[in-house]
Write a protein that binds this DNA or RNA. Structure first.
Lengths: 231, 231
DNA sequence: GTACAAATTAACTCGTTGGATAAATACTCC
DNA sequence: GGAGTATTTATCCAACGAGTTAATTTGTAC
């Protein structure tokens, strides 16, 4: 019997292959965690061979770290495009909240990855050299907004930017990341459209109330625009 | 050679054994997640034999669910002992926040377990019959406080109790649960004493500002008392 | 068209791990 | 002190899954 000449499923495309692998790995790690993820499933999902993962990226842990780094890079990059400098302080904060909320909704894998990594006490992330440096510019961006708000008298207090960001992220993150257990124990679907809209308004109200000392009724309409889909 | 008569390490004590198993399993699942947990390690930690886990509880998944149910039962039970009905609305909320914060600090495994379960989309929790029923009384307790606050004029808005609780829990949970990655990316130790005290004050300020519309300066001293260690 | 490297495939290794079996040991009640 | 049951122990094993080896194919440069 003649040996069949089997064409490769994908013509040679190392770059594309690497991307497909990382995308598949992201899904897998998000769905099952580091320990629960299966190399074979990632390979299958990427329309690749198991050997390819090792060839293009490395072992399971390397793969996981690569996914994690890419995830951080992606969100921080989108945030840099927010252009908050040109908005009034309150509007800037509302926009940051709106972005954060919708980013988390659009990227549920990001939440799951962070959870997995935190259960592991950031053991893997600590091996990263890139991730840390992404964050000082981000903190400075928030600090600038707060300082401006204080200077114009719009904000009551010079809130610590890290504290503020953790609150914003926390109010969004916890609701979405824990929506499965919360929906179950409270017996209501936290992910249905109405519930999500209500939550975003609630978060914006909460944060601005604390910053400005004024009621949530002063929200600009813009602040409640959903899914800003920034470039 | 005579067969040594090896005394059992623990004299017959099925109840104690069960408790030791669940305690060891809690640690293990919290540290490694469901997939990463190792039955053998749990057995060793519980000073038991692997067979004992199956005998007293069941397979790995049963064990995991038992741990999860016990964890929910524990926090809800402590909350019931808070006796918030006798406090002024603001003080009651501050006390609830204080309790929640310190409970999370005292029980880091609880946070890790919830994270693991949420990565799994509550797949396992949904098999539980007990957990759901624990929560309506809890929600009603919060609703009562809010209603009282609105009636006395202390609170501006009749905030949805579930929304409010998710915010309180989120502000505490995210900070603590994600402290490993956050500490790393922001380059500061979020778990050192000062940082934790600052965070608790920040959370109380944020929530009360939104509820009362007043500044955080009105905090009662009690509200910042740490580690209430309720009965 | 041939030499050489890059990319891809198939098949195998081998330790780990959840779970199962059977036998041994202690407690209880008569 | 013996029967019967509850608890505990010592082994075993089949499946799985990460990682490897070696062969094969495809592109490229000359």
């Amino acid at each position: 019997m003649k040996k069949a000449k089997r064409a490769a499923k994908w013509p040679r495309d190392p770059e594309g292959m690497r991307i497909r692998i990382l995308e598949a790995a992201k899904k897998e790690f998000a769905a099952y965690g580091l320990a629960g993820a299966r190399i074979d499933r990632i390979a299958a999902e990427a329309d690749a061979n198991k050997r390819m993962l090792y060839y293009h990226v490395g072992n399971k842990e390397d793969l996981y770290l690569a996914v994690l780094e890419a995830a951080y890079e992606k969100i921080r990059a989108e945030e840099r495009g927010l252009d908050l400098e040109h908005l009034d302080p309150s509007a800037a904060i509302a926009r940051l909240i709106d972005f954060t909320w919708n980013y988390f909704i659009r990227n549920p894998e990001f939440l799951a990855l962070l959870n997995t990594e935190n259960v592991a006490k950031a053991r893997n992330l600590k091996r990263s050299t890139k991730v840390k440096s992404m964050h000082s510019p981000f903190v400075e961006m928030i600090r600038t907004i707060v300082d401006r708000g204080v200077k114009t008298g719009e904000f009551r207090v010079a809130m610590d930017p890290v504290q503020l960001y953790i609150s914003i992220a926390g109010l969004c993150f916890f609701y979405l990341s824990n929506s499965a257990t919360l929906s179950f124990i409270f017996g209501r679907d936290l992910l249905k459209k109405d519930a999500k809209e209500e939550r975003l308004e609630h978060v914006i109200m909460l944060v601005l109330a604390a910053l400005t000392g004024r009621s949530g009724a002063t929200l600009t309409p813009m602040a409640t625009a959903h899914d800003s889909h920034l470039a």
